[in-house]
Design a protein around this nucleic acid. Structure first.
Lengths: 214, 214
DNA sequence: CGTCACATTGATGCCTCTCAAAGCTTGTGG
DNA sequence: CCACAAGCTTTGAGAGGCATCAATGTGACG
């Protein structure tokens, strides 16, 4: 029944949102936009203009609360789609600010909505990407809930490694530390300890998880 | 263009996934299923049978990793839809186990996919719910990243309170502690301290955030 | 009235953050 | 080709904060 429109993201991609292939344009040709550090992309309450995909740099979503506090909602990662909810709402629900010089793709709202409406199979693909993102966010949240640094690292590796237990790092270990919510010092110490305990092996630009003996 | 199909979830619901109204059936009549504590709902690799909504109890999603470790992917909350990704995949990507006696609604896959395919407006609503969930998960993840217990509580309150700064608690404080990733002791202490410092007011079944003077 | 779960407070210890410093790699410019 | 800067990597010392264990109070419910 599902036929050729079924998209199976596979197992290894769930935490690797940032590594997804350029992916669909959903029938819309996006325009590119450059943001300098500190520049505002959109403001809470403004009419929603579209959906964005971050190509390079970093963008943070803020929300101003009734009591005047600014709450960070999310820090967008490279390759990630954001402000999807603006498709279903007339206005943005948060501010978006570039933390560094950044490049974003803009999918203008009207054409995108029209495209998704007129081509249900595109909407299906869009929905599939959202469902995948929900999965990824859930596992990420679960990982960050773990208190122990070593347990957190081990579970992260278990989740993203391939069949032979190897995880090939994309960026720096410092970035990894940030990803899993540790300071870089804590991560370095933890990796050193785990290797000393024989639970992982450190390779050139990669980590290998060793199967524990019972 | 978007017309009457646009669904605007509003501001206050983003962290309150569990409090969403019974919501759509997406054109499918779900069946109910009871799970006893420890019972397996579905297993990784099994043919995906449908999508679920947890009514009462607790369900946890696990994943067996290549190295044999079990990783907790997510703990489902009351009212939450889960296993949505199974719509786009032939097989489940994780195990689902009831932690307590639980009631789930089952939306069988075939009819649901057919319904969503034949009625794009239902798919649109389904997508909107997913987009909302992405928002909610993001803010929740951001909240949990905050180290300081008092900051975490304050940001949570700032995010979910109404215009007058009041948050009406739905369950127990113990549940709140679990939601925001604190032990209940730490939460009680934090609330006591925040009230003593004059930053919040504790009401009957509610908390009020006091606007800070500059 | 007894049980059970939530609410609250106390004492202790461990773990991670923080600050600090040094080695190492990479890139740039003179 | 060398020197310098910048960022990542690594290790050290100290402290603060939250988890943990423990005990008591309190309210609901049968």
């Amino acid at each position: 029944m599902s036929g050729n429109l079924v998209t199976d993201p596979g197992r290894a991609t769930e935490l690797a949102e940032a590594e997804q292939p350029p992916s669909e344009s959903f029938g819309v040709t996006p325009s590119q936009r450059h943001l300098s550090a500190g520049q505002l992309l959109f403001r809470e309450g403004a009419a929603s203009a579209g959906v964005y995909r971050l190509q390079t740099g970093r963008v943070r979503l803020f929300r101003s609360t009734p009591t005047g506090i600014q709450v960070a909602m999310h820090t967008v990662r490279r390759g990630e789609l954001f402000a999807e909810a603006s498709l279903f709402s007339a206005r943005y629900h948060c501010d978006a600010v570039a933390l560094e010089p950044s490049e974003v793709l803009v999918y203008p709202k009207r054409p995108l909505v029209q495209s998704l409406r007129e081509h249900p199979e595109r909407l299906w693909i869009f929905t599939a990407e959202l469902a995948r993102r929900v999965q990824g966010l859930r596992s990420r949240a679960e990982i960050k809930q773990i208190r122990s640094a070593s347990e957190r690292v081990l579970q992260f590796l278990a989740l993203v490694c391939d069949a032979s237990g190897v995880w090939r790092q994309e960026g720096t270990l410092k970035q990894l530390a940030d990803d899993i919510g540790l300071t870089h010092e804590a991560l370095y110490r933890t990796l050193a300890r785990l290797e000393h305990e024989g639970r992982i092996v450190r390779l050139e630009g990669a980590l290998r998880l060793r199967r524990q003996l019972p």
